Amino acid sequence: MYTDPSTGAQSRVFDALVSYPSEFTLKIIGSGETFVKDMLALLNEHSNGGVTESKVRRTANGKWESITATVMVDSGDMVYLLYEKIDEDPRVKFKF
């Protein structure tokens, strides 16, 4: 929760600190043969207009892949929904 220093009002972080609509960048790290394709599909399905930019990197040993993707979001609720959907996939190791 975020507390506004001037009013003391509390709100969720993504509701308080981001103006909507907005471009939002996520980084997702995981593994699997279709991991990148599936994560991009998820982001396209649950954002407003889909992925506008993405970059994929693999670790030197090829075990992990990271996706950095920018999507358009309309609200804090949409950001939280994206994170919830990402968390449902057991191949995801880390996201921010």
Rank of each mutant, 00 (worst) to 15 (best):
Y20H: 02
S11E: 15
S66M: 10
T68E: 14
M1Y: 03
E33P: 08
D38Y: 12
L82I: 00
V92F: 04
W64C: 03
A16Q: 09
V13W: 01
M1C: 15
M39P: 04
P90R: 12
L17M: 07
T7I: 03
T70P: 03
S54L: 02
E84V: 03
K55C: 11
N48W: 00
D77I: 00
A9F: 07
D38C: 07
R12H: 09
G76N: 00
G30P: 11
D74R: 05
S6V: 10
E45D: 12
T59M: 06
E23P: 04
V18A: 01
K37L: 12
E45S: 06
V18N: 02
T25M: 12
S75D: 07
E88W: 01
I86S: 13
V71M: 13
T7S: 15
T68Q: 02
K85L: 11
T3W: 04
Q10P: 04
K55E: 11
P21M: 06
S75C: 05
S54N: 04
K37H: 08
V56Q: 15
K55Y: 07
I29A: 00
I28N: 03
S19R: 09
G8A: 07
S31Q: 14
T59D: 05
S11C: 15
L17D: 05
W64A: 07
I29F: 08
R58Y: 00
P5Q: 08
T7M: 02
L81F: 09
F35M: 10
M1K: 13
L81R: 15
I67Y: 09
K93Y: 03
S11F: 09
I67G: 08
A41D: 14
Y2F: 14
S19P: 05
F14R: 02
H46V: 07
A60Q: 11
T7F: 09
P21W: 02
E88H: 05
L17Y: 05
E65L: 13
K93T: 02
T7W: 12
R12K: 13
T59C: 01
R12L: 11
F35W: 07
T25F: 07
G62Q: 12
A41Y: 04
L42V: 11
A16E: 00
